[in-house]
Amino acid sequence: MSSLCIPNPTLFLFSSSTGALKTLINRARESCLRILSSKMISSKAVTSKKMGKNVGFLVCVFIMVIDSVAGVLGIEAEIIQNKAKHSKVLWMFECREPSYKAFQLGLAAAILLAITHFVAHLFGGCTCIWSKEDYRKSTPNKQLAVVFLLLSWIALAVGFSMLIIGTLANSRSRKLCGIAHNRILFIGGILCFFHELFTVAYYVSATAAKKEEKQNRNPPGGPTAQA
C-alpha cells in the first residue's frame, strides 16, 4: 500500500509534456488565426480598391459614351431639320415646316445630356470652395475640380438650352414663321462633346481630391495606422 502512494515519475513527465504541447498548439492556433485575419483584411482592402477603380472607370466610360451619343443626335437633328421645307422671307425671318424626327432626336439629346450630368455629379460629389483663401489652401486636384465643375455647368446650361430651343421649334404641327434658328441644334450637339470633356475631367479631379483628403485625415504613420 505504501508503494502506491509514491508518485510515478513517468506519469509526471507525460502530464507535463502534454500540458506543454497543449500550450504550444493553442499558441500556434492563435498565430494562425492572426495571420488569416490580417490576410483577409488586406485582401478586402485590395478588393475595395479594385472595385473603386472599376467604378471610376465605368463612370468615365458611361459619361463619354452617353455624351457622345447626345452630341451625334443633336447634329443629326440639325441635318434632318435642314431637309424640311423652309423659305426665307427676310435675312433673319423664315417660314419652316417642323420635323417630328428632328423633334425626337433633339429631345433625346437633351435628356441624355441631363442624365450624364446627373450621374457624374452623383458619383463625383460636390466640390465647393467658399473663399479665395480656401482656394489657395486647397490641393491642385481640388482647384481643378472646381474649375471643371463650373465649366461643366456652363456647358450644360448653354447646350441644354440650345437643344430645347431647337426641339421646341419642331414641336408644332403647322408651319412656323419667325426668327431663323440657324444651327441651334448643331451648336447644342457640339456643346455635348465639350460637356463630356469637362465632366470627365471634373470627375477624375474630384475623385483624386477626395483621396488626398482621406490621406491627410488618416496619414500612414498616424494613430489609426499604429492602432
Rank of each mutant, 00 (worst) to 15 (best):
S2V: 08
I6L: 06
P9L: 09
P9C: 04
L11M: 09
L11F: 00
F14R: 04
S17T: 10
L21H: 12
I25W: 15
N26Q: 10
R27I: 06
A28Q: 12
R29F: 05
L33T: 00
S38E: 11
K39W: 11
M40W: 09
K44N: 05
V46E: 11
K49G: 01
K50P: 00
K50E: 06
V59Y: 10
V61D: 03
V65T: 05
S68V: 03
S68Y: 06
A70S: 13
G71E: 12
G74K: 09
E76D: 08
A77I: 11
I80G: 03
I80E: 05
Q81C: 04
K83W: 09
K85N: 12
S87G: 08
L90W: 05
C95E: 04
S99C: 02
S99R: 13
A102E: 06
Q104M: 06
L107A: 11
L112H: 01
T116W: 08
F118K: 13
H121M: 06
G124H: 00
T127L: 05
W130D: 13
W130T: 05
D134H: 01
K137A: 02
S138D: 07
S138I: 00
P140E: 00
N141K: 03
K142N: 00
V146N: 01
L150A: 11
L151C: 12
S152Q: 11
I154P: 14
A155P: 11
A155K: 01
L156H: 01
L156W: 04
V158A: 06
S161E: 02
S161A: 14
L163N: 10
L163S: 07
I164T: 07
I165D: 08
G166Y: 11
N170Q: 10
N170D: 04
N170S: 03
R172L: 13
K175E: 06
H181P: 01
F186Y: 01
I187H: 03
L191M: 12
F194I: 10
A201G: 09
Y202F: 08
A206Y: 04
T207V: 08
K214A: 15
Q215G: 15
N218D: 11
N218F: 13
P223W: 09
